[in-house]
């Protein structure tokens, strides 16, 4: 498994990214962690219906976004709010789905972030299509496609890998192996020696990386992106990480895992080890630390302010986007609803 900085913060490999890159990454980690915490708080206050936290997986979220160019694409899952935010999308736009206002709150074309959706692994063939189209158009776009360990059991995961390999599509598949699919442990998803090994059958190089080590993730994903951009085809990266919190706020992890396991993984926290490393090299000063914390608080305040606003939603939107032009039937139904809403009580 690829690892450059271990859980104590010690450097255990060669070819560390430049200190500026790691500092930027650390700053992004601080923001991602703060976003997870803020969203969790909003759920507890009842201002956000549901939030699948990526607490503990922030290094994957941050690295996946950081290695991309502006013209590249990100294909996230529902758990990747922090990755989308790290890509530069306003968290409030991302949270539109989870606060129940619309299915997707950002513009996927403008942001080059595919819409989040819950059907597992179904986004992966789309990622291959976006990459293949880019190559047909002569563009060197790369697509970063995310999924979880559980999703690797779905047929779409396998079809996507196979298509990507056959068409040498410029796709990097990043599996965040956080050890659980809700309650189901990894051992029930796969009997293979690793998830990265699944690439072999498709002719896709697979690599395992410490998913809580931002340095190693950055190196591995940068190389995979470069390979895709060169036209050498897809890669499969398995990030070894852990879902520290419940699947969502509706979940009860005490039914399927013990606290001891969670505590062990807390010690491998992605922020902690990078902070130790950057502090020991002198790159991370108390001033910078305060600066990053300030930026995180500013972001959290922005999220809170936006979430306390009750956005007026127009029910007519229900009919507006189903087709490029609403059908006669939809126009009729829109008129019916409008009449109901203006008619008051029966």
């Amino acid at each position: 498994m690829e690892r450059l900085i271990d859980e104590t913060g010690a450097v255990v490999g060669h070819g560390l990214p430049a200190p500026e890159v790691l500092l930027d990454g650390y700053r992004a980690l601080v923001l991602a962690r703060r976003l997870n915490e803020q969203a969790g708080a909003l759920v507890r206050q009842g201002r956000l219906a549901v939030y699948p936290s990526s607490h503990g997986q922030e290094a994957c979220q941050v690295a996946a976004a950081a290695v991309l160019e502006e013209t590249d694409w990100l294909f996230p899952t529902y758990r990747d709010v922090a990755a989308i935010a790290a890509r530069g999308v306003d968290p409030l736009d991302v949270l539109v789905m989870l606060r129940g206002e619309w299915h997707c709150g950002y513009d996927p074309i403008a942001t080059r972030v595919a819409p989040q959706a819950t059907p597992l692994a179904t986004q992966l063939p789309h990622a291959v299509g976006v990459g293949h189209a880019a190559r047909l158009k002569g563009e060197d776009t790369v697509v970063m496609a995310l999924c979880g360990d559980g999703a690797t059991s779905e047929g779409d995961f396998h079809e996507a890998l196979n298509f990507a390999a056959v068409f040498a599509a410029p796709v990097v598949f990043l599996v965040q192996n956080n050890k659980y699919a809700i309650s189901v442990p990894l051992s029930r998803q796969s009997a293979a020696e690793s998830l990265a090994a699944k690439g072999v059958g498709y002719g896709v190089p697979g690599v395992r990386v410490d998913g809580n080590d931002l340095a190693a993730l950055t190196v591995v994903l940068t190389e995979a992106v470069a390979r895709a951009r060169r036209g050498d085809g897809p890669s499969l990266v398995e990030a070894d990480t852990y879902r520290i919190q419940a699947h969502t706020n509706a979940d009860d992890p005490s039914r399927y895992r013990d606290d001891e396991e969670v505590q062990r993984w807390r010690l491998r926290d992605p922020l902690l080890r990078l902070r130790v490393h950057l502090t020991s090299t002198g790159a991370l000063t108390p001033e910078l630390e305060a600066d990053f914390a300030g930026a995180a608080e500013e972001m959290a305040a922005h999220v809170r302010a936006g979430m306390s606003q009750d956005n007026a939603l127009d029910p007519a939107e229900l009919f507006a986007h189903v087709y490029s032009t609403p059908t006669p039937q939809l126009r009729e139904q829109a008129a019916q609803l409008a009449a109901e809403l203006s008619g008051g009580d029966r």
Binding site: R99, E101, H103, L318, V322, E340, L341
Partner: peptide
């Protein structure tokens, strides 16, 4: 329900057949 994909939570009440719509 209307001939639309199932609405997001904050709009679903407009979609679901309710007592008023039935009595109308």
């Amino acid at each position: 329900g209307f001939d639309v994909p199932y609405p997001p939570p904050k709009l679903e009440r407009h979609h679901l057949p309710g007592v008023d719509r039935i009595l109308d």
